[in-house]
Design a protein around this nucleic acid. Structure first.
Lengths: 202, 202
DNA sequence: GATACTTGACTGACTGGCCAGTCAGTTAGG
DNA sequence: CCTAACTGACTGGCCAGTCAGTCAAGTATC
């Protein structure tokens, strides 16, 4: 399969997944989003599951790239940027639909080993990135030395997951969680002698 | 329909939902868990969806009862008890399977108004209960006056959601989140002049 | 107290629609 | 030619929902 075709199919799968959701996603929906027929999808991919696994790989890779370089001078600002990306409001439907599809897939984790592995990779990427930001923050004297970067990163990842789940399930505001997380970072994590305004706090 | 039959069908639906998950739940699975036939389920309930809506009502009611009275003398201890119930480890599979099914249903929120309404009721029950505990804690002088009980309750509900999502999706430990939440309460919420040992902190 | 009628609960067997996956081809580039 | 890419038409399994009936527990009628 040519790279263009592969990319086209990944795009089509992504679009169809967002549009229809995981549960009611049909191979025909994916074909409809591409220039290829349903039979062609089966020609390139063993099964519908395989196609979805390929999409998850693809998304994980692009997520890894995206969190590599973050906006902001200090680790604190970079952390803020990471959080803002994760909790960016779904003004257009597209983002919320994607988050919904991801949540559907998360709920399939226990039934599908491959999904769980992909989700675990995703989770770990995010966790490790945050842990490193916290460690960098400690090295720069911006973050208290008495917090555990590992556990704190776990906590932040959990909060991000919670915000996304509630956003999808009950329409809860992402912004509300973002604000609480900002407060948490400012009061619990920031070293006492740091000038708040220097790291973007009011 | 007699109350016994109704209860039996709710039990059967609950058991089948946990055993098979939402996505692959068939009417036959539910019938298999009860003494009735599949056709009887359709006799009592318009559709499979209706049966599930009835189950959610049933579960929401029993959840409301359960959070009414919480173990513990002080609001702090009661909050701890509520958190522990929400994050009780899934030593037996049953609890994890139920959490998985709930997550599957949460991910259906955007596609099903009735589900979203039920989920919203559930979310609000939990949020309001926590808000009241925080307010009681403020009245008793146990919790800082400068935190907003409403926003803080939102934050805690979000953390609980996140813990459950990660637990289901990637098998992340619930205990780990429980511990971080304990620290959060102790450092961010507890009033400064409170003797930590009096409210169960080490 | 026997007979017929009614009704609610229940069921086995069936149907119709849906959809992943298959297959026997066609087409185009090398 | 040969092969990889591609396709329309088809198939088989699955499952929610339907239907024509059974059955037992009333309840009215004589």
């Amino acid at each position: 399969m040519s790279t263009e075709t592969a990319d086209e199919l990944m795009d089509a799968t992504y679009t169809a997944l967002c549009k229809h959701g995981y549960a009611s996603l049909r191979m025909q929906d994916i074909a409809d989003e591409s220039s290829k027929s349903k039979a062609t999808l089966h020609y390139h991919y063993e099964s519908k599951q395989d196609l979805l696994y390929a999409l998850l790989d693809y998304l994980t890779d692009s997520f890894a790239d995206r969190i590599e370089t973050l906006e902001g001078e200090t680790p604190i600002e970079q952390l803020r940027s990471l959080v803002e990306t994760s909790l960016e409001p779904s003004e257009d439907d597209a983002r919320k639909q994607f988050r919904t599809a991801v949540l559907e897939i998360k709920a399939q984790g226990p039934y599908d080993d491959r999904f769980r592995d992909e989700l675990t990779a995703f989770d770990r990427l995010l966790h490790d990135r945050i842990r490193i930001l916290l460690e960098d923050g400690q090295d720069a004297g911006l973050i208290r030395d008495d917090i555990d970067p590992n556990e704190t990163a776990e906590f932040i990842v959990t909060v991000l997951n919670g915000a996304q789940t509630r956003h999808v399930a009950v329409g809860h505001s992402l912004e509300c969680t973002r604000a609480m997380l900002e407060t948490y970072v400012c009061h619990q994590l920031l070293a006492e002698d740091v000038d708040r305004t220097e790291v973007g706090f009011e």
